[in-house]
Structures are given as C-alpha cells and as structure tokens.
C-alpha cells in the first residue's frame, strides 16, 4: 500500500503539477516544454533532437555573464536541435537579454538553431549576445523581430532562412552569413546603425535574396565581403539611404581587395520601405 502511494505520489509530482522555476544552470530538454514568465539562465540550455521548447508571449530569458573558457565571450546559451517556437506579439514580445547591470555585446553566447526540426520566431528581441541568433543546417522563419547590441545580429550558414519585417541595429554585423549552398530570403527588414550591415563571409553564390530592405547608416560598410568571398554578389531593390543607390565607398569588395568578388545593388529603391513599422509601433 505504501509502495502504491509512493508511486502515485511520484506520478502526480512528475506529470500533473506544473514545475515552477525561475533559474536554471545547465539543462537538457528532451520533452515538450512551454515556458512563460522570466527565467534566469546560468549555463547551457539544450533542446535535444527529440525535444521541443515553446516560449509564450512576454517570456523573458535573462542570461548570466559566465565565461568558462575565458575567451571573453559569455558562455550561457540556448542551443536547439529539436523544435523551437517563440511567437511573441507586438504588445508582448519575447526578450532574450543579459543579466548584467551594465550589459555589453557578447555577455551571453547565442540562440543557436542547429539541425533544428522546426524554428519559428516572431516578435522576439535578442540583445547583448555574441549572436542574437545563429541558424545552421536547418530551415528557420524569423519575422517581426529585433536584434540589437550583439556582435552578430543574425548569423546563418548552410541554412534555409526567411528573415522578414525585422529590425537589426547597433550590432557589429547586422547580418553575417556563409551561404554554402543554402538559400534564403531577407526581405522588408531595416538593417541600420551596425558597423557592418551585411557581412558575406564566404561561399556566397547569390542564393540568398536580399530585397526590399532599408539598409542604411551602417558604418564603415553597408556590405562587406569576407576574405574568401570571391564570387560577385548582388543586393537588388533595396533602399540604401540615398536615391543614388549603394555607394562604392560603403562597400568592401574587389575594389579594395582584388581577390574578392564585386558587390552590386541593382535597381536601388528611391525611398525607404519603413519595414519595421509593426515592431516600432509607428
């Protein structure tokens, strides 16, 4: 009888009562979890291939500044191989941020989507990370989101990414990507006030379409090619902050290093798109 009661108590505890915690260290999620409210993350949260994590509107993930390998980059992170759904709303966005009193880019590492089975992000703000989000070897849909005060705002490689209606600003790189055979659509975003608006690191062949974006006030470069980006890249139909289009002075390409490809911005728009109207609440 006592054994039966113990088993029933255990079942009740593990499957019926909502677990309420406000802080996690290293955590592996292999089941289906839905989070809301505020949680402080002091380590690596990993969603396994079998796992699923859903963040409800208004959820706030606060990453502590921990640097286990002393490389100057925070090591707290959210790493997803399974499903990740973060759908905030305009009024109640989801926030991923630093716990530091005086937060800096790189306080925490990243939201990393690696071979993720599903990745859907709406109305999410990611700030003070090494990378606001990284997407690798998977399909990801990101819209109405904001990436600010990171080293890399949005970074992807070998991915099929849709990035729309989002605002990327005050990062070292607004977008940093290595296409490597992947495809993408980057449309109707505002990419502004980053040191580099778009950093095409290597292996880009024009499979990622950047169009109808406002790409403005990124200094010193609106578009920069990495050391091994030898193929020409075009960024058509964007607003570059000037009705004359993309200025050569704001591009790092073969005009500065002959081994690189050439950057063009064909059919430039003559006025801004105002792509992030919904996020900014205009």
């Amino acid at each position: 009888m006592i054994a039966l009661l113990s088993i029933l108590s255990l079942l009740l505890f593990t499957s019926c009562i909502p677990l309420q915690i406000s802080e996690v260290s290293d955590l592996v999620i292999s089941d289906q979890q839905v989070w809301q409210g505020e949680v402080r993350i002091k380590g690596v949260v990993r969603v396994t291939r079998e796992g699923s994590l859903t963040l409800l509107p208004g959820t706030k993930l606060v990453f502590s500044r921990i640097d286990r390998d002393a490389d100057g980059i925070g090591d707290a992170e959210l790493f997803v191989e399974g499903e990740f759904v973060a759908r905030g709303t305009a009024d109640r966005p989801i926030l991923l941020t630093s716990a530091a009193t005086n937060p800096q880019p790189g306080d925490w590492k990243f939201l990393y989507l690696d071979y993720a089975r599903k990745a859907e992000i709406e109305y999410l703000i990611s700030e003070y990370a090494y990378s606001g989000v990284q997407v690798h070897f998977c399909r990801a849909q990101i819209s109405f989101s904001e990436f600010r005060y990171n080293i890399d705002g949005v970074r992807f490689s070998t991915a099929n990414i849709s990035l729309k209606e989002s605002y990327l600003h005050h990062n070292r790189h607004g977008i940093r990507y290595e296409e490597r055979g992947g495809r993408g659509l980057v449309q109707r975003n505002r990419i502004s006030d980053n040191r580099i608006g778009i950093f095409a690191v290597t292996r880009g062949e024009g499979r990622t379409l950047f169009e109808l974006n406002d790409i403005i006030d990124n200094e010193p470069y609106q578009v920069k090619m990495g050391l091994q980006q030898t193929t020409a890249l075009d960024f058509p139909r964007n607003w570059w902050g000037d009705d004359k289009g993309l200025s050569a002075e704001t591009v790092f390409d073969q005009r500065r290093d002959r081994s690189l490809g050439r950057v063009t911005g064909t059919d430039p728009l003559d006025r801004p798109i105002n792509a992030t109207r919904q996020i900014e609440g205009d």
């Binding site: 309420q20 690798h136 490689s157």
Partner: peptide
C-alpha cells in the same frame, strides 16, 4: 516566474557545469 505548463516526462538538470561544447563557429 517561469512556468512549465505541460507535463515534464524527462527533465534532466545537470548540477555540475559541463565543458563548453565546441559548437562550430564561435569556438
């Protein structure tokens, strides 16, 4: 306060810190 709204059949909290996994690019 975070709430886990759905059942938690498997939840593994690792108390000890694990070494940072060599997750490609940042490493």
């Amino acid at each position: 306060m975070m709430k886990v709204l759905r059942p938690v059949p498997v939840l593994l909290l690792l108390i000890l810190c694990v070494a940072n996994m060599a997750f490609s690019c940042v490493g």
